[in-house]
Each structure stands twice: as C-alpha cells, then as structure tokens.
Write a protein that binds this DNA or RNA. Structure first.
Lengths: 148, 148
DNA sequence: AATATAATTATAACAATTTTAATTTAATAA
DNA sequence: TTATTAAATTAAAATTGTTATAATTATATT
C-alpha cells in the first residue's frame, strides 16, 4: 500500500520535472511510511544516521518543493514548529490541546462553506483549512485521575 | 459602536482583575478601531509615536493577557508572524493567497463537524478553526491585467 | 506615605527557518 | 566518454518572531 503511494508520489515529482535525489526519496518515504505529521527537525533527526552529512536546509528545501507540487501540506501549529502532512486523501485534523497529538478524520466536505464565502466576499476560492481542537482520550483519562 | 466595544472590553478586563494601563488601552483600542488583523509588530509600530519608549515585549505580553481573557484570538498564518483578532462575534476568515489580506465572513456554524469529529476520534471537542483561501477581487483584477 | 504587587522596559537569548556562497552531483549534448 | 550546464546539497551565518530576565517604574492597598 504505502509502497504504491511512494511510487505514485515519485512519478508525480518526475512528471513535474523534479529530480529524485536520495535525500528526496528518503524524506518522502519517511513522510509516507511513518504515518505521522513530523516536524522538519524530526525528519532531519530520523534520517541523519542514513545521511550523516545532510543539512537541515535540505529538509526544508525539499519540503518546500513537495509543497509546491501539492504532495505535502504544511500545518502551522501555534507557536512551535510546522508539521508536514503527506496528502493521500482529503481529511481534516483533530488536535489535542494538552498533548499536541494530531489525528486524521474524514468529513464529507465543506464545499457549501466555500461557495458561500465566495459569494459574500467576492474572492475566488482555492480551498480551505480546518482543524478541530479538543482533548484526546488518553489525556481525558489522565485529567480524571488527577482530579480524583 | 467601536466606543462601546472598547468600553465592554475594558470592563471585562477589569472584572478579571487586569489593570488598565495606558499601553493596554492603546493596544486594545488599536485592535478594535483599526478593524484589521494586525501583527504584534504592526501594533508596536503604530503606537510607538504615542509611547516612544514602549517595548515590543509589552505588546506581546499584553496580547497574551488579552488572549487569556478571551478578548483576542491569535491567528497563526503560515510562515510569517501571527496576527491578532479582536473577537466581537463568531466569524471565519477568508485569506488572499497573493496579497495576504484577511476578510471576515459569517457562517451559520460547523457544530455538525464538531460532533462528528467527536464520535469518530473519541476526543472531547473544545472548538475548531477554519480558514478559506483564495484570491481577493483586487488581485483577480491585477492577474487579468498581467495576462492580457 | 509606605509597602506590596504588578507592569513596563531594555536587553539578551532562543528556536525555527531562510539566505548565502561554495561545492557536489546529476543530466544533457557533443 | 567527456565537457558543459543546471540543479541540489552543504555548512555556516543571518534573519525573524517571540520569550525570558532583571532592573525600573507605576499602581493599588494599608
């Protein structure tokens, strides 16, 4: 499954005329197989044993390249560092206010909102972003324990 | 109108035991009367003639105070600096991809999404955030001119 | 007026990200 | 293959937004 995703992604890059360097392959692979929403630094740290002299700049550079082709989305999350999400299919994010965990969830779509916004503002709409915030099951348990 | 808003806000602060210093008053007033979504630095720059020796830290400090009382929301916008929004009533933001302009718009509410997310993820939901991205009327015109 | 508390200032520190310039690598054409 | 060109990577410095610290000043309370 993930193998196919990786191939897809690489083909899409090739089609856009982007060279597939070992570093790019590794960053992309990490984004896909890890199934997480890593920060640039997390990616860097988990690949530095494989590429001992890769620089952080490379990670940032390539994440930007991936963003331009639409393979990856940047999630800007409050004060701290951005997280990067491989876009396999449309989904939204549920974020835990107390531990920061990000969980994907699907929702039929907010096309209605887009068209209303278009009418009201006169903008030409490209897309939207939504996140739901709350407390994850684990943190809920912990909070209860603390109170009792 | 805005006068009333300012008074409301100040009363709310007083009730929470927050002192109304000249700097706080000015920052709050700027947020309300300017009707924009300024960055901390924009606020700082537009007040430094009035308070020649105010520091940026004061702006950040007080924005944080306002955030805690719920008077102000922080909008973390991509790479660059946060913008701050005085919360008069529930609304969403429409953001221009080419010039960065932010326009408010109202939408009945996304409670549905929240309750679905709650069921699917098991999180206890606090709230959500949504932004719609697109091109503002002005930038649409400019783009057309460039093409012709 | 004296004391305690909180807010402001100025500066330094910090972390995340970007820029720069030099070097290396890969792709293309002769 | 070799030479040429373009693109990607590296390392380091620079920038940016924000926060922490300590000293000073203002405000409120007794």
């Amino acid at each position: 499954m993930t193998e196919a995703h990786i191939q897809d992604a690489i083909n899409r890059l090739k089609d856009t005329g982007v060279r597939i360097t070992p570093q790019r392959h590794a960053i992309l692979e990490y984004l896909i197989v890890s199934m997480t929403h890593p920060t640039a630094d997390e990616i860097y740290k988990s690949l530095e044993h494989k590429f001992p002299n890769m620089s952080v700049a490379t990670v940032y550079n390539n994440l930007r390249v991936f963003k331009k082709t639409g393979l990856v989305k940047e999630l800007t999350y409050g004060d701290s560092s951005s997280r990067f999400d491989f876009v396999s299919s449309e989904h939204y994010h549920m974020i835990c206010n107390s531990c920061g965990k990000i969980v994907d969830f699907h929702y039929p779509g907010l096309d209605e909102v887009e068209s209303l916004a278009e009418q009201v503002t006169g903008f030409q709409v490209d897309g939207h972003r939504m996140e739901v915030y709350g407390t994850c099951p684990e943190c809920q348990k912990q909070n209860k324990q603390l109170k009792s």
